[in-house]
Design a protein around this nucleic acid. Structure first.
Length: 1076
RNA sequence: GGGCAAUUAGCUCAGCUGGUUAGAGCGCUGCAUUCACAUUGCAGAGGUCACAGGUUCGAGUCCUGUAUUGCCCACCA
């Protein structure tokens, strides 16, 4: 067999992955589990905007390791992939792209068109990241891929929203929120970052009549002040507490109440704080407590509002300048000073956050509700708030966080959690499932999705080309032209991802043909409805379109309710079309329906359920051939009976849908409830076993999942949380594009060193909760190791023959001391690695494996096997099982080698995890072999010290207490140390003593060595070490307190060690004597 | 301001509930090239475990304090 000397990962990796996928080995339905217990992980969904970075790579390496390990152990194993729509991040990316490439804003396109752009972008992006994930070797079940914004997940989102609303946990309120004026949306508290900046602190009085000064960095907000707060213990202001002052601040009249609040620090500024309820979270709380007026002086564009008097319309910066100038001019400004403070900025775009009051949807985290699930009730009681429930499941260890210290962080965050603002003023995301009635003040919350109608005109027909009106059902001879057919195909291209549930068309030939073309791909029932026919044209039949158009344009009033020249009246057309639409809406609530009809009908449709005057409606444009209309309707009625409802424009915080991820990914496509009876996958895999993610999103995501899932399902989302650290560069800094020389792209690194090496570099040395440094030399080292594995396999494959042995046949395999040694060591390795992996300590497991593979197996056993010969079966037994242990770490190279060794087997990844065999443990043989190793190393050492040419064989004599062992190992010692062993008895040796140099138990033939003095030095050194050691031990053992207090085995152990050391010393002294 | 972590060989890090003469990889030094592998082999040098106290028969490991570094949270009106 021709096997290259160097392993070339790129020649194998892609094919190996394709083979796994083709065999469907990632799908738990396609492989037989050998145990009942499940092991499941849902992939933390990467943002659709992203490309694979090291954070993902490390996440994938760790999770794939867990999953492959458990799969080999026979667990029913699922690893579910998906992507996150990442509302704000994705919208920002597409907006930037749109601006750069076309100079347009999202408003230029409008919601509908903009979202189409986003979806197109998302599609591309998803494919890129999925292929990158495959590169890493991740054994994800792609057949169950989810997306936070797909229909199943969307239904789960609406359902939970409604559940929470019905439980009174979701409410709409006018509250202070974090507003990003750039993104034009609210942000959750933890989506706000802080940036240090230097600011000016202004100390001033509102006006001349106000008794004392206040200090602020933002004078412009003071236009909205309703109070001044002081510390209740501050003596300076006691007399004013409770008083109300009418002031005129820069032309704006304000009523300022003096209130006392502990939050105020007397030492800061003047100890008096101007309270601006509308623009500071702390002040808003004070306003609630003290019933203060909320005056909003800054709007959503970060401009001053009408309430700001003459400053209205100015930017906040401009207003600040003007106000400070005016204060100074009027002698109200006492001083300005520089200070460093934290500016709150948007975590996505880094612009300054403007805290302001606004009408938003919130989740109440303190309100009690009826807890679901018996385990949850046990933890939190029958009734609990979201906060209490989320705290209790971690306190009671229903969820186990690794490393444990993050529990504290979690508790602290959860205990201080405030109501969660979930509405976002973005377009991309889950639209809030609330419908406002246009005819009364009510609104309706529904889990049903909007009924959506896609209304299109037929493609170009022959009568269009001839410019002949043709609406006589008896005379439908004209079908579509070639161009018409192409137009239809073009529309279908745009619609194909919409998951249309039904197709309606008129009974005209041109619409039926259009429907048939589209339905070639969709295979839906086509419903023909004559109510969707083109308007009846009466006497104009067969005439030019323009003639009819001109007539109707000029005689609308006449035609509105009547039928001059036999033209069907507008009223009649409207009535039949609306009746048809009403029926469709009722028949397909929450679904998408495609309607293929004619120009005038398209026009009319736009007025469905809307109060649009007939004439205005008649004059509306309708979509050109090749385009379509998209209309959304409420799937339910308002209490008042009106169906004229409009959905809330806002979308939900992306973490709302992400919070459902562990169970929403396991729901059936057409689920009605979250019940396990209805959702077999949920029953099989939920709660998931481990959630593996970075500690940096503990709050964003992990906490939210706990909160949302315990609420919605009455079950924890996961039993364990494994938090990994961040990947840093060699200096310990965050990798960033601004430092390209240290930033590593996992894909580049994979191409260069192989993805197995990249995985190892991310796994070994990586411990829970700790950051890890990565740099090229490290990956290179693991590349070298992978190559070592490869070359071990080359060696073993060259040793032909032998058959595979099982663990039960170990005794047959063990013929020599080296055999017993390696097999004992190896079985300990199996035991240790298994234990460490169960403890999530994969780094130590990897280190042990590396040590065994390189040091024990390659450096010693393989060398011995060249001497002892005929070890094919043993080598195969160890190596094949070793490949299994390695597989979760380095799946590609192990599978590649496995396939070469077992061409007939399906795959290493579904082979059985090695079992530890107790009977293989042989402590005595291990000890004996270690002493042989020691001898060999000593001989090599002496050779090296004396610069003996490697090719030169030296002669030695060994005087050992274990003469049999030396005799038996004579060949091994000779081969591995290039020394000829001449065994002497003590008496025999006496005769040669003058020619030999003693070194421990070994006597070297003097003329073979260059410098016996050197050896003397060495022995002296060893003697000193030993003497020091012995005196320390003696002291210890003569200490009664130690002997009495320390546990017996410890004392015994120490005695043993002392005895051994004394023996050793004795020999050394003897040899030293001989040297002199 | 509150909290968490880290500090062990030149570098990157192990060292579990206190009981070895403190380990690994890389790097370094010397030697070796047809025999699985130079992406290699063999041998070696290198550490008062940040500092100061304390607990204990015994401390890298536990406690207190100090210093340095990093991170998280709160907040700076």
């Amino acid at each position: 067999m021709e096997i290259p000397k160097t392993y070339s990962p790129k020649d194998f990796e892609d094919d190996i992955y394709k083979d796994w996928e083709a065999q469907e080995l990632f799908n738990p339905d396609k492989i037989k589990p050998r145990r009942k217990e499940h092991f499941s992980i849902v992939l933390p969904p990467p943002n659709v905007t992203g490309t694979l970075h090291l954070g993902h790579a490390s996440m994938l390496a760790i999770e794939d390791l867990f999953v492959r390990y458990k799969r080999m152990q026979g667990f029913d194993t699922a690893w579910i992939p998906g992507t996150d729509h990442a509302a704000i991040a994705t919208q920002n990316v597409v907006e930037k792209k749109l601006w750069k490439e076309e100079g347009k804003t999202r408003h230029d396109l409008g919601r509908e068109r903009f979202l189409e752009r986003v979806e197109a972008y998302v599609e591309d992006s998803k494919n890129i990241i999925h292929n990158q994930i495959r590169k890493m070797g991740a054994s994800l079940d792609w057949s169950r891929e989810a997306y936070t914004l797909d229909e199943t997940r969307a239904r789960a989102v609406r359902k939970v929203f409604k559940m929470m609303y019905d439980d009174g946990l979701i409410y709409r309120g006018y509250r202070i929120v974090n507003w990003c004026p750039r993104c034009k949306t609210t942000l959750a508290d933890d989506e706000v970052d802080y940036k240090e900046q230097s600011a000016k602190l202004y100390t001033f009085k509102y006006d001349k009549n106000f008794p004392f000064a206040i200090a602020t960095t933002r004078p412009e907000t003071k236009l909205g002040d309703a109070a001044v707060a002081v510390n209740p213990n501050d003596e300076r202001y006691q007399e004013y507490i409770g008083q109300i002052f009418d002031v005129n601040f820069c032309g704006v009249d304000l009523k300022i109440k003096i209130i006392a609040d502990d939050a105020v620090e007397s030492e800061f500024g003047t100890g008096a704080l101007g309270v601006t309820p509308a623009h500071s979270a702390v002040d808003f709380d004070m306003a609630q407590k003290n019933n203060l007026e909320i005056i909003k002086v800054i709007d959503e564009d970060a401009k001053m509002t009408d309430k700001a008097g003459k400053f209205a319309g100015m930017s906040v910066e401009e207003a600040r300048e003007k106000i400070s100038a005016e204060l100074e001019k009027n002698g109200l400004l006492e001083k300005t000073e520089e200070l460093i403070n934290n500016l709150s900025v948007c975590y996505r775009c880094k612009s300054a956050i403007e805290p302001l009051t606004s009408d938003q949807w919130f989740i109440n985290v303190n309100k009690k509700f009826k807890v679901r699930g018996s385990e949850m009730k046990k933890s939190a009681g029958k009734e609990a708030s979201l906060k209490e429930l989320s705290l209790s499941v971690v306190k009671d260890k229903n969820i186990n966080i690794i490393p444990e210290r993050f529990e504290k962080t979690y508790f602290h965050w959860m205990e201080n959690l405030r109501d969660w603002c979930i509405s976002r003023q973005l377009w991309f995301g889950h639209q809030i499932p609330v419908w406002y009635c246009e005819d009364c003040a009510e609104y309706v919350v529904t889990e049903l999705s909007a009924t959506e109608l896609f209304v299109m005109r037929h493609g170009e027909a022959k009568n269009n080309v001839l410019d002949q009106l043709n609406s006589d059902i008896e005379n439908q001879i004209n079908g579509l032209t070639e161009k018409g057919k192409e137009q239809v195909e073009a529309v279908f291209e745009k619609l194909k991802n919409e998951k249309i549930g039904a197709i309606y068309c008129s009974d005209f030939r041109r619409t039926k043909e259009t429907a048939a073309i589209i339905n070639e791909k969709l295979n839906l029932p086509i419903i023909e409805d004559p109510r969707l026919r083109e308007v009846g044209v009466g006497e104009f039949e067969g005439k030019h379109d323009a003639e009819l158009a001109a007539f109707r344009q000029n005689n609308f009033a006449q035609w509105q309710n009547d039928n001059p020249h036999g033209i069907e009246s507008f009223e009649s057309l409207k009535t039949r079309v609306f009746a048809c639409l009403e029926e469709i809406a009722e028949k397909f609530p929450g679904q998408k329906v495609l309607i293929i009809t004619h120009g005038d009908v398209c026009r009319i449709v736009q007025g469905f359920r809307k109060n649009i005057a007939d004439e205005k409606l008649f004059k509306m444009d309708y979509p050109l051939t090749g385009e379509y209309l998209h209309l959304k309707f409420a799937p339910i009625k308002c209490k008042c009976g009106s169906q004229n409802l409009k959905q809330d424009e806002d979308t939900l915080d992306t973490w709302f849908s992400a919070g459902l991820w562990t169970f929403s990914t396991l729901l059936e496509k057409d689920f009605e409830t979250f019940d396990k009876k209805e959702n077999p996958l949920l029953k099989r895999f939920h709660p998931t076993t481990v959630l593996e993610t970075g500690y940096d999103i503990l709050f964003f995501w992990v906490a939210r999942m706990i909160l949302m899932t315990t609420y919605a399902t009455g079950e924890v989302p996961f039993e364990n949380v494994y938090l990994h650290g961040l990947i840093r560069d060699k200096e310990g800094d965050k990798m960033s594009k601004s430092k390209p020389e240290t930033a590593i792209d996992p894909l580049d690194a994979g191409r260069k060193y192989g993805f197995d090496a990249v995985r190892l570099s991310l796994l070994i040395g990586n411990t829970a909760g700790n950051d890890i440094r990565l740099y090229d030399e490290k990956i290179e080292g693991y590349r070298n190791f992978v190559n070592k594995l490869w070359n071990i396999s080359r060696f073993i494959l060259m040793e032909q023959g032998g058959r595979d042995k099982q663990a039960s046949e170990i005794s047959e395999l063990s013929k020599t001391l080296a055999d017993r040694w390696i097999i004992s060591r190896f079985n300990k390795l199996i035991r240790e690695v298994t234990k460490l992996l169960d403890e999530y300590n994969f780094s130590s497991a990897g280190e042990l494996l590396r040590e065994f593979t390189w040091n024990d197996f390659a450096d010693w056993y393989l060398e011995i096997s060249k001497v002892e010969q005929n070890k094919e079966e043993m080598l195969k037994y160890i190596f094949k099982n070793l490949l299994k242990l390695w597989h979760p770490f380095v799946p590609f190279v192990t599978e590649t080698i496995w396939k070469q060794m077992n061409p007939k087997e399906k795959s290493l990844m579904i082979s059985e995890w090695p079992e530890f065999a107790e009977k293989a443990i042989d402590e005595n043989s291990e000890k004996e072999f270690e002493s042989v190793k020691e001898l060999i190393i000593k001989i090599r050492n002496v050779r090296s010290e004396n610069k003996v040419q490697p090719a030169k064989k030296i002669r030695i004599s060994i005087i050992s207490d274990n003469e049999n062992l030396i005799k038996e190992q004579r060949e091994n010692i000779t081969a591995l140390s290039r020394a000829e062993v001449l065994t002497f008895t003590r008496q025999e040796q006496e005769k040669f003593i003058k020619d030999f140099v003693p070194m421990g138990e070994i006597y070297f033939y003097m003329t073979d060595l260059i410098d016996p003095e050197k050896e003397k030095e060495r022995i002296e050194k060893e003697k000193n070490n030993l003497e020091n050691y012995i005196s320390g031990m003696e002291k210890k053992l003569s200490n009664d307190e130690f002997v009495n207090n320390a546990p017996r085995p410890v004392v015994e152990g120490e005695r043993q060690k002392l005895a051994e050391a004394r023996e050793k010393l004795e020999k050394i002294l003897e040899q030293l004597g001989a040297l002199k």
